[in-house]
Design a protein around this nucleic acid. Structure first.
Lengths: 239, 239
DNA sequence: CGCCGCATTGACGTTCGTCAAGTCTAGTGG
DNA sequence: CCACTAGACTTGACGAACGTCAATGCGGCG
């Protein structure tokens, strides 16, 4: 819950391409720099925000890794996403002025705090920012359509393969390895996201390992055959 | 594909509370009236837009009923939502300037066409519209979180009960009966949305009917015990 | 070094998908 | 107006996929 008050500038942030619009004039850039009021660190296991809390800001992940999840009154639990550097959290809170999920740090993390009324104010002046906000929200909708497809029509192996390839691709875009990754979440959290039980997640990892597609050592995953994983997701490629 | 060019005014549309911001000044109202350029009719079975088509506009349902669905290259199919009067379609297209799903009319329908560049333009001047656009997109994200919860953690009966109650509630908000509804979609489409096969949908309907919760005659559904349906979704209520 | 949470694996049961047969209904054309 | 048809729906029998329960292994952290 500690709030650090470091003055920050998006204009020379190395994550800029990930969370900011591109092609701004100097003047616009100066305006957009006012977006981030401060940063905030969140220790592993702690919440950036909770379901029900008043919504004030969007957050951009600077370092670390988050999950967002819903918990219903009757104890059901659903992970709705995993967020890494440059990704935005809090969009769900805009509609009702309350957060509707929990955002939990899966490792020590730091986020940029962007008060939403300030975003709206600047977006009214800087068209590129307005477009950017719309784009981010729309893409979140499209991402969730993809998750619905996954949950609604894929079998366990397909789900896990799609999940691994998606993670890999996002890590790759951030300059990490094409073939290796470290899972920041438990089997149970993966299972919750993918609509399967942790045992099924574990078994499916083992199956992929037996088939030589990947190598699993706890949370350390090495991808040996991404192509074949792709074929697991989308079997059509048999010609 | 016929485009009717009726000049329309949101300011005296009876669906206004559903798709427009409230509390506008006369001047703002005049600006917002320019949002809808025209209306368009879509015959049952036809598409309002297709996946891959260039995105230009958002659409608000005036009459009729739609489904939106994804189709993957390998023939998988996922219904991502059903839309009725006052609900907005096309949000998924903003991010990539292309539609990413198909919108199909399930009965003869009419929509209001709102060119998105015009929305953005007016939103820069009318704060209430800007907020409204944000709210609509955020709520769509929250809705999809709910679907993820449903697909990820509920069993067939729970899914169908939740689906019926959700439909009922939306119809109720539009002045229809508390206890009766006509499904505009097939069992297969319901199944696709809920991640189950049409036979399971049918069986589950029959089960609810056997238990006296509902009465099913083809697509005509009468709800006898909405409370009990609620308890199917959320069994915790056993005290 | 020991403990605890996480992960793996096996045996078994349930839920739901698959396949198939048969019914109902709305729409069409004679 | 009625017979016919195609598509939608229902129902049953069976099997596969995945969940459940339980035992055990492993590694990281204090």
């Amino acid at each position: 819950m500690l709030k650090e008050t470091i003055k920050v500038a998006c204009s020379n942030c190395n994550l800029r391409e990930l969370c900011m619009p591109v092609g701004l004039s100097d003047d616009e850039l100066r305006r957009v720099d006012e977006l981030v009021t401060n940063r905030r660190s969140v220790k592993r296991g702690n919440a950036l925000f909770h379901n029900g809390e008043r919504f004030t800001s969007l957050y951009s992940v600077r370092t670390g890794f988050f999950k967002t999840s819903l918990t219903t009154e009757d104890g059901r639990d659903q992970v709705t996403g995993f967020q890494m550097a440059g990704e935005i959290m809090g969009l769900d809170g805009i509609g009702s002025e309350q957060h509707t999920c929990d955002a939990i740090a899966l490792e020590d993390a730091e986020v940029c705090v962007m008060p939403f009324n300030r975003i709206e104010e600047i977006a009214r002046e800087v068209g590129a920012l307005q477009k950017h906000v719309h784009r981010i929200m729309s893409r979140e909708i499209v991402r969730e359509h993809g998750v619905m497809l996954l949950l609604g029509s894929m079998r366990a192996e397909e789900r896990l393969a799609a999940f691994l390839l998606n993670l890999l691709q996002r890590l790759q875009a951030r300059g990490f390895s094409h073939s290796e990754l470290i899972l920041r979440m438990t089997r149970e959290e993966i299972g919750s996201y993918l609509g399967m039980k942790l045992e099924t997640v574990s078994r499916t990892f083992s199956k992929f390992a037996d088939e030589g597609l990947i190598e699993v050592r706890q949370r350390h995953i090495r991808i040996h055959d991404a192509e074949a994983l792709g074929r697991v997701v989308n079997p059509r490629v048999c010609h």
